[in-house]
Amino acid sequence: MFPIHRPRRLRSHPQLRRMVRENVLTTSDLIYPLFAVPGEAIANEVKSMPGVYQLSVDKIVEEAKEVYDLGIPAIILFGIPEDKDSDATGAWHDCGIVQKATTAVKEAVPDLIVIVDTCLCEYTSHGHCGYLEVGDLTGRVLNDPTLELLKKTAVSQVKAGADIIAPSGMMDGFVQAIRSGLDEAGYQDTPILSYAAKYASAYYGPFRDAADSTPQFGDRRTYQMDSGNSREALREIELDITEGADMLMVKPALSYMDIIWRVKEASNLPVAAYNVSGEYSMVKAAALNGWIDEERVVMETLTGFKRAGADLILTYHAKDAARWLAKLGN
């Protein structure tokens, strides 16, 4: 007895496989992260992230032009200030490094969407995402006073030209605080992409090299989520939606595809997945050793995020992926 159903019939030809493909990755799905530092003509490669650089504003503009020419619609900016303090002054100052980079990019490439990471860990002397009690060495951030800093930071970033605010500190009520701050300042139309489900993950290690944001003591487990929890992610997104989030992010992505799926199923909002530094660096290390086919692994992984429900993907592979997609005609 021959089987009546033969799924292989639809796999027999490359064009046929393309016609019936359920999830298709395009450059419109991609967001490219960039790290801004003070100075001029600076491009410092991050040792733990081959191909990723800390860039001065002039170099950020060059990168932004290349990203736009590749068809990638957006970047997300992170900043490494010259000086750090307990008030995270560099995060909200009108002359902060991210503010300067944002203005420069919008002047040079006005149609490129600039997302800004709205967090404080890169700007505080202790490396945590907000105010600490004096003498506290546990890393337990004071939630409500930190909200005021985040409001000031978001308003300053939008004044500089940011198109989207992306708060990542996982403070309770941060979406509502930022939304009210933006509205009061006349920026009612600025969307918020909330890091709604951000886990306390070992996959962030290389990013902390890139952003110079390693905590000086303690860790971030008192405010980032525990990796064993999934129902908690749904509670977090529900709160952020109620507070006015326009888009939701899951971070990291690779070990949390189930969370991406659950968030997508539970929400009508666009869902972003952050393909984080550790995920990127593992692929790069294996590829440099000749252990894997980098292009195939990257494209399979990014497509997996789409299949899990991601509408947007923040990834350090974005430029390479855009070139590979261009070869395929996508």
Rank of each mutant, 00 (worst) to 15 (best):
R235F: 12
A318K: 00
D85L: 12
E62P: 08
R221Y: 03
I241M: 12
L248R: 01
S168T: 04
L254K: 07
L132C: 05
V134S: 15
G186W: 11
Q224A: 06
D69E: 15
P73A: 01
V263P: 12
I259S: 08
V114R: 09
G79K: 07
F35K: 01
M170L: 12
P73S: 01
G130F: 01
L314N: 02
Y280S: 11
E243L: 09
T242F: 11
D111C: 11
A326I: 00
T153H: 09
I115T: 10
D111T: 15
V105C: 09
E279W: 02
S277E: 03
A101E: 09
G309N: 01
E22M: 08
K264I: 05
S156L: 04
A177N: 09
N275F: 08
G309I: 00
R221K: 14
F207C: 04
I259C: 10
A177C: 10
L234R: 07
M171I: 06
H93K: 13
M171G: 04
G161S: 04
A177Q: 06
L254A: 12
Y316D: 03
A154D: 08
E63G: 14
S48A: 15
A286H: 05
S86A: 14
K84I: 03
L302A: 11
H93F: 13
R323M: 13
I259Q: 04
V46C: 13
H128T: 02
D29H: 15
E238L: 11
S277V: 07
D85H: 07
L34M: 15
P7I: 12
M299S: 08
D293H: 12
E238H: 14
S227Y: 03
F305P: 02
A41K: 13
L193E: 09
L314Y: 11
Q15F: 14
T27Y: 02
I165P: 01
L16I: 14
P167S: 09
E238F: 11
V109I: 08
V116Q: 05
I241C: 06
N229Q: 13
A245W: 04
A41W: 00
L137M: 12
N268D: 15
Q224S: 06
W92G: 05
